[in-house]
Design a protein around this nucleic acid. Structure first.
Lengths: 168, 168
DNA sequence: CCTTACTGCTTCGAATTCGCGGCGCCCGAG
DNA sequence: CTCGGGCGCCGCGAATTCGAAGCAGTAAGG
């Protein structure tokens, strides 16, 4: 593509900024809608959506954290909030006593089902309205490739996956 | 593409999630690098970069807020931090006495110049390494279209542009 | 069984973020 | 000139975020 020593060309720079701006704008709009519609933050919705999507409606904290780009403590905090609202339940795992299984409650499922249409409409209105099918295909392909590359790239210093550097 | 009443198909959903994950991951990595390299947060870097890019190295707070997806108070806070570090200067506008002109100092320019290479390298390594020229072109085109669409879309309730809803 | 290393999660303190309300300044009407 | 309405920015309090440190459970070695 270009030498590792060279800078980004105009096209790359533009794509980079556009990517960041689009995602920020989208997240902001979606988060606002989510807040108004079901009093959920973006992360909370992601957690619930992931749980609903899971086979048994339950996932370990770690798996949740792997899917959601978030710190462990933040996840604990948000899970506590969701637990307090009765949208999820936390129970020790039968296999690993140190793990915590998070399960969606019926209320959680209902809430997701209630906010999902608006959420989806928001996303389509902002993101997909301006895209053709070809655009979608291209975007999907590129993003899949980039995501795979990012996940394969070694955490230079500390990804969200951080926290393993104790001395004694 | 699809009816306004229908949900997102698998491809759209995947693209949506991939977009959010990629941008989050990228922002996270870049922010970390930026912090280590010049003790700057992502927003601070964006502010400085925008100022350096501006015609006279100066911009009004409002214009800054328009470019950066951020709340007004957050911008004030960050501007205060940058001002305290001597990277920018804030002075009243000659035209509009209520506006505040933000100007980059030489130190600010130097800092941007110093962290820019690493920043760029990080972006290329994570984002563009896995992309062909065709990918880049496609991505750039789609994002430009989407960005234009988003900017044209009426702020349904309150975009970053929020804060104008007082009664008295 | 006991020790050592590692993993999973939570708690803690500090820093950052946002929305709301306040203050001062510009514009138009009388 | 004076008044009323609107805009631009700042200060405050509450909520959220993160990394570091701590606690418990698990696996491996002797």
């Amino acid at each position: 593509m270009s030498d590792p020593t060279a800078g980004l060309n105009t096209e790359q720079l533009g794509a980079y900024f556009a990517l960041m701006e689009v995602s920020s704008l989208l997240q902001y709009a979606v988060e606002e809608h989510l807040r108004a519609d079901g009093d959920l933050s973006w992360v909370q919705f992601q957690i619930l959506a992931r749980l609903v999507d899971a086979p048994e409606g339950r996932l370990r904290m770690t798996d949740l954290a792997d899917g959601v780009v978030y710190s462990r403590s933040g996840l604990t905090y948000q899970a506590g909030l969701l637990d307090k609202r009765g949208l999820i339940t936390r129970s020790p795992s039968p296999d690993d006593e140190r793990s915590v299984m998070v399960t969606v409650t019926d209320a959680g499922r209902e809430l997701v089902a209630r906010v999902l249409p608006g959420h989806v409409a928001q996303v389509r209105g902002l993101l997909f309205e301006a895209m053709s099918d070809e655009d979608l295909a291209a975007l999907g392909g590129v993003l899949a490739r980039v995501r795979a590359h990012m996940r394969a790239t070694p955490p230079r210093s500390a990804k969200p996956r951080a926290g393993r550097n104790r001395a004694g």
